[in-house]
Design a protein around this nucleic acid. Structure first.
Length: 1156
RNA sequence: GGCCUGGUGGUGAAAUUGGUAAACACGGUUGACUCAAAAUCAAUUAUGUAGGGGUUCGAGUCCCCUCCAGGUCACCA
């Protein structure tokens, strides 16, 4: 009565004004403190501090046009909580944020709208920043970096140059400056330093000194960490551009569905393969999830085994001898990069062979079958190049210049250089020469054959012989397989080559020529996708050739089959059907006899692939286990000179070129077609060329350049310099993100990428939080860059991210309406535009689906009524079709549709008729999907923050569940968290009385609640269990409310405790307590056991493991006494049923169990 | 198909070293306050941890098999 009178007198305005102070007015609180933090630079971090450091990093976001949805901040909130906790615990915490701002979407958008990527990126970043600020993160924004900022990519380019000027020293296991390699070459050539990129490359000190500048640079290129090579890209003629792998779907371009083809392009690569072993072994030192490490391990794909050479028969030409001895002389087991090159050339070669030009064909007819006294091979791969015709024994290459070659002048030149370097003589004829005067050409060749071999000194002879027969070059004598099971060598029943294998055409017998050609045609016709989806299908073709078993000397048939991949191992396997499932299926399918080397363990029906087997029927290996037999087999093979231990990696060198605009330009200029780093002496006369950054020039069009080059190729003013031409490719997305964690340490430095003092202080990232999508891309390259920079002495640690936490995805929870589809149902003259759309409530549809006739009739009646039809056709199950249509989740409350909103949402729905359920509601169906604009299930954090406040939003995201788990977003549950914060607020404020915190001394019970909470929160933050933290806060507040506690002694600590989770509220309370500095400078409350310690415990007492009663005993009571009392307890006596207890299990502080 | 994660009420989940399964919330229902609503408060709501077997005094937790879901690589020799 009095209250309502007061209300009447004071009016609503005054009441509201009072409420602002007393109610939990999160909007005002949060805005005030955000401003305060900003104005006072509260989150600025210094590089000078006596405190221990802690570096927390979130994975670099790409600022997309769609902005943040509620899923994105999950990891940011977690890292923010941890950062604030660490700061309160006395650490100097680096917690920066920035943007991975280069990238394809911005360029794509530019192509479509003409807006410059820099502009759209800037806008997107602005929006991201607003959204991030809204959530109250403690980032030190003065350290923000953007990869697209010239002051940033200056150092990306600088690091690239360091990689370009480095090689990998396998002996030292270290990245070293290329100058040290040049020194070594001057002393001893490359005899002891095989090139990782080109293992045919051999020269001594003299040869090196006689090399031209160009030859030297070419040799060095096959050692550099950042190097140039050739790789195939997807080229789309119609779009005039190069496409990424995932832009090619089903063999056509994703956009437009245009045909694509493979095209050779000169590309930059990073020689990450040299780091394979280190990247693998140091994984063990990292605190990452096992799943993540496993993904990296799989990607690196180390397998130990043996490489075994099988001699071939009968297509061997006798004159060339058995080269297997030389094959393995002085070779290291590192082939990955070369195999990569091979697999990209192989299809090319195949193509050429299938389409010999007229001239080539004429010449081939005169060269083949030893007609000139030496064996010629056509379209033969040597190293990275294909020779038109080659005689290995006479070291002669014959090139016929046809149409194809006119487009490849540059490549021809390189090829010639390459062959000459190998000691081959290269002679060239034009098409006309060959066609019009074949005899003359043949005469010329004959002269060369005699002259050339006569010229050679004996030293040369030896060297070249070794060379010619080295790996991958001296083809035709033996086939090399890679196997992880050399112990099964006696079970080899056939050899399988990849259809693209270079030996296939050489060894195929005439009788099998057609069959092999047909099979290769078939393989070619099948898309990648088909090959993948039909894994089980067994296909293959016999070549007619046989290999000789190294021990038994038996002849083994050589097949080709698509299940063997050209790109893995050596592109050839020894098939052991009794021990391998695929080999077994293959043998069964083609009726190849199977040798059993596992005795009874092999049933004849299924391969025995278990590694626990004992080897049988295997000569000297019989009776050994897998490990013993493996070692013994390898030793024996090594002795024979036909095999060696070999470690193989799946990892491939990473392509580092993109034919795009919106990326870092390369600091590379081609002089006379030779690439030079802009920092090299050759540009000394032009200091403007030497300056970094090489800035990305403005372009008017984002269209690709000629021949699939990037858009930069369209700007001659930029490309052409007084000395040479600039590289027109740009760097890929992972360039800038591979080292950004270093830049945060010293982001404004213009002298170096980051001051050594800063990197020595902050070192590696202590905690890195992000999604699993970067498992093998960014995380692997970052690790490699860090190792390289460490090796080169620029930083003093070689792993970037010590601990990694993967946040799960927050999925969207989509809502659907059932809409009636037109068609079939209505009269011919029916005009759908004049009649309303019809929607059916999901619960009615569900009942119909469950066979409820009444529901179906209800729907039919509704349709008839609203569509003006009288009959429903019978040719469909229900006579009509419904389809599930996404509806904006903002229009749905739980599952109930906001009908008015729905009608306004889409114009077609203005007159829509909705069939409601019995309660008069329209229910939507639901499904969990990715959160995405096109599913209308995106929830914007801004909306949540407006409605509930940032503190509620932060705590709710954490409350959803463990952060590494994926879960759908459900706004419903947020009420509970919001209620909790309001309830906590009421411990400090009363609606009427305002601030109600007292200075009374806390009771034991209150202190127990507080310290229990401190312990739980501390432990749980440390183990990243933030959801249980929120629960504990709720328990704490519930208990303090029940105790009616408003005491400063308790509540001040609680305010600090919750600061990492609800920083705005904590700051407000902290200031209400009279502090005039920010709560982030407070001290995190310490747990004190004395307040929690109890001296008795209510034990659950079980009989045979089933809890029957609870009994309380002092904790320090002796076991014998407890046992006595337990056995005397009437309930226990009852459950014992008169039986004597066998023993009593007593676990102090836990439970008691009586065993009968 | 391989590898990795996971499977607990109507829902999100908790149970950290094997020791009282379902804490803390959401939702539902009922009630109090209110003209009514909101807000708040109170009460109420799961016989059993995917299934089968094993180890143990005792298993959601450890071991084996099967099933299911998600992630990842995909004929990797």
């Amino acid at each position: 009565m009095v209250k309502s009178l007061l209300k009447f007198i004071f009016g609503t305005h005054l009441r509201r004004a009072l409420y602002i102070v007393m109610e939990y007015n999160f909007n005002k609180i949060e805005q005030d403190w955000k401003k305060y933090w900003k104005d006072n630079n509260v989150y600025k971090v210094s590089n000078d501090s006596d405190k221990p450091k802690y570096y927390i990093l979130d994975m670099f976001p790409y600022p997309s046009g769609a902005g943040l949805h509620v899923g994105h901040p999950l990891g940011y909130i977690a890292s923010d909580i941890y950062a604030r906790y660490k700061r309160l615990s006395g650490y100097n915490v680096l917690h920066p944020m920035g943007y991975d701002a280069f990238g394809l979407p911005a360029e794509q958008y530019a192509l479509e709208t003409g807006q410059h990527p820099a502009v759209t990126t800037e806008n997107n970043i602005k929006r991201y920043r607003e959204q991030l600020d809204n959530i109250g993160f403690c980032y030190d924004w003065s350290r923000e970096v953007r990869t697209s900022d010239p002051q940033y990519y200056k150092w990306t380019q600088w690091i690239f140059l360091q990689l370009f000027h480095s090689w990998y020293d396998r002996k030292e296991n270290k990245t070293r400056p290329i100058a040290t390699l040049i020194e070594l070459f001057e002393q001893e050539g490359n005899i002891n330093i095989p090139s990782p990129g080109n293992d045919e490359l051999q020269f001594d000190a003299t040869a090196w000194k006689n090399f031209s500048e160009k030859e030297k640079r070419e040799a060095l290129m096959s050692y550099r960490i950042a190097y140039q090579g050739y790789a195939e890209v997807w080229w789309c003629e119609a779009l005039g551009t190069v496409l990424a792998n995932d832009e090619v779907v089903n063999g056509v371009s994703e956009r437009g569905g245009h045909p694509v083809e493979r095209k050779q392009m000169r590309q930059w690569f990073l020689r990450i393969t040299e780091y394979a072993e280190r990247l693998l072994s140091s994984l063990d030192t990292l605190d990452w999830s096992e799943a993540m490490k496993e993904m990296q391990r799989n990607w690196i794909g180390k397998s130990k085994g043996a490489e075994i050479a099988f001699s071939l028969t009968p297509t061997l030409s006798k004159g060339e001898g058995d080269g297997t001895q030389e094959k393995f002389s002085g070779k290291e087991g590192w082939q990955t990069a070369d195999v990569a090159a091979y697999s990209s050339i192989a299809p090319h070669q195949k193509e050429l062979k299938n389409s010999l030009t007229e001239a080539e064909n004429i010449l081939w007819q005169r060269l083949r079958n030893n007609q000139l006294g030496t064996k010629f091979r056509r379209q033969h791969i040597v190293g990275k190049f294909i020779a038109d015709f080659i005689s290995l024994s006479k070291q002669l290459v014959i090139e016929v210049d046809g149409k194809i070659h006119e487009q490849q002048k540059e490549e021809d030149h390189q090829r010639t250089l390459f062959f000459q370097e190998k000691g081959f003589k290269v002679i060239r004829f034009t098409n006309e020469e060959v066609i019009q005067d074949t005899d003359h050409v043949i005469e010329k060749i004959k002269t060369e054959l005699t002259g050339h071999s006569g010229e050679k000194g004996s030293d040369d002879e030896n060297e070249n012989q070794g060379k010619a027969l080295s790996f991958g070059e001296g083809l035709g004598e033996a086939v090399t397989v890679f196997t992880t099971r050399p112990d099964t060598i006696f079970g080899v029943d056939f050899i399988v080559l990849a259809p693209e294998h270079e030996l296939v055409d050489l060894i195929t017998t005439d009788a099998q020529k057609q069959a092999v050609a047909d099979y290769k045609q078939y393989v070619k016709s099948r898309s990648e996708r088909e090959r993948m989806s039909e894994v089980k299908q067994v296909t293959g073709c016999f070549t007619g050739a046989y290999a000789i078993h190294p021990f038994t000397k038996k002849e083994i048939p050589v097949w080709i089959a698509e299940y063997v991949l050209a790109g893995y191992g050596t592109g050839a396997i020894m098939a052991v059907p009794s021990g391998d499932d695929r080999d077994h299926a293959f043998a069964k399918h083609f009726n190849i006899p199977i040798t059993n080397i596992f005795g009874k363990l092999y049933s004849g029906e299924e391969a025995m692939s278990d590694k626990s087997a004992i080897i049988e029927n295997s000569d000297f290996l019989t009776g050994m286990d897998v490990q013993q037999a493996t070692d013994a087999a390898i030793s024996a093979l090594v002795k024979l000179g036909t095999g060696k231990r070999r470690i193989n990696y799946k990892l491939r060198d990473a392509g580092f070129s993109r034919q795009r605009y919106w990326g870092e330009p390369f600091p590379i200029i081609y002089v006379d077609d030779v690439p030079y780093g802009t920092d090299e002496d050759i540009f000394k006369a032009h200091p403007e060329l030497q300056k970094l950054p090489v800035e990305l020039p403005h372009v008017d069009s984002y269209k690709p350049g000629p021949e699939g080059q990037g858009p930069l190729a369209n700007i001659p003013d930029w490309v052409n310099t007084p000395v040479g031409q600039r590289e027109t490719n740009t760097m890929p997305g992972y360039a800038g993100s591979s080292w950004y964690f270093l830049r945060y340490m010293d982001p404004q430095n213009d002298e170096t990428f980051a001051d050594r003092k800063a990197t020595n202080y902050w070192r590696e990232v202590d905690l890195y939080i992000g999604g699993t999508e970067h498992a093998v891309g960014h995380l692997l390259y970052s690790r490699m860059w860090t190792k390289a920079l460490c090796d080169l002495g620029y930083i003093s640690f070689d792993e970037p991210f010590k601990k990694l936490v993967n946040q799960g995805m927050i999925q969207g929870s989509s809502r659907f309406t059932y809409k009636l589809l037109q068609g079939g149902l209505f009269p011919v003259d029916f005009d759908p535009t004049t009649l309303p759309e019809i929607y059916i409530s999901a619960d009615i549809v569900e009942r119909r689906n469950n066979g409820d006739e009444a529901a179906n009739n209800e729907i039919i009646d509704f349709i008839k009524q609203n569509k003006g039809v009288t009959a429903i056709p019978l040719d469909k199950k229900y006579g009509y079709d419904l389809s599930e249509i996404h509806v904006d989740v903002a229009l749905v409350d739980g599952y109930e549709l906001n009908i008015e909103g729905f009608k306004v949402w889409r114009r077609e729905n203005v007159n829509a008729k909705l069939l409601l359920n019995a309660d008069g509601k329209f229910i939507c169906s639901a499904e969990v999907e990715k959160m995405s604009k096109r599913y209308y299930n995106v929830v914007n954090p801004d909306d949540i923050v407006n409605q509930y406040g940032a503190d509620t939003f932060r705590m709710y995201e954490m409350f959803l569940g463990p952060i590494e788990m994926s879960k759908p977003w459900d706004t419903k549950g947020i009420e509970g968290v919001h209620r909790f914060l309001k309830k906590m607020w009421r411990l400090y404020f009363d609606e009427q009385k305002g601030w109600i915190v007292t200075d009374e001394t806390a009771t034991e019970a209150e202190l127990r609640v507080l310290h229990k909470t401190i312990k739980k929160i501390t432990d749980d933050i440390e183990r990243f269990s933030f959801n249980t933290c929120v629960s504990q806060f709720m328990i704490c507040v519930n208990e303090l409310s029940a105790l009616n506690c408003h005491k400063r002694e308790i509540l001040e600590k609680l305010a600090v405790l919750i600061c990492p989770f609800a920083p705005h509220m904590a700051e407000e309370l902290w200031h209400q307590f009279g502090h005039n500095t920010s709560v982030v400078g407070a001290e995190f409350p310490k747990y004190e056991e004395q307040y929690v310690r109890e001296n008795s415990k209510k034990y659950p007492v079980a009989v045979n493991g089933k809890t029957r009663v609870e009994l309380e005993f002092p904790l320090d009571m002796e076991q014998s006494l407890i046992e006595k009392e337990v056995l005397a307890d009437p309930t226990i006596v009852k459950w014992l049923e008169g039986k004597a207890p066998k023993k009593v299990i007593y676990v102090k502080g836990k439970m008691i169990n009586v065993v009968v």
